[in-house]
């Protein structure tokens, strides 16, 4: 794990602290911030993932053929 010190606005800290106290989901503001970062990283990974590389044009044509044969596509 990398250690990182960041500065955030007082009002942002207060808002997070309030949420931590109310929801009791996290032990501290630090834990809450860590969770926010992990969510953002997970989302970035999703966005970067893009289309499936294991699926070729030929495979796609086969799928379309099956969809047509089943009446899902004209």
């Amino acid at each position: 794990m990398k250690k990182l010190t960041i500065e955030i606005e007082d009002k942002e800290y207060t808002a997070l602290e309030k949420r931590v106290k109310e929801k009791k989901e996290f032990d501290s503001v630090e834990a809450y911030v860590q969770d926010i970062v992990s969510q953002v990283v997970a989302r970035l990974k999703e966005e970067e993932g893009g289309d499936d590389e294991k699926f070729s044009k030929e495979d796609e044509e086969k799928v379309k053929e099956r969809l047509r044969s089943l009446g899902y596509l004209d």
Binding site: A42, K45, E46, E47, E48, G49, G50, D51, D52, K54, F55, D59
Partner: peptide, 16 residues
């Protein structure tokens, strides 16, 4: 198109 959950659509199928 919405990305699959986790970013990559799993395809663990042996086609060959």
């Amino acid at each position: 198109m919405i990305p699959p959950h986790g970013g990559q659509l799993v395809q663990q199928i042996i086609k060959d």
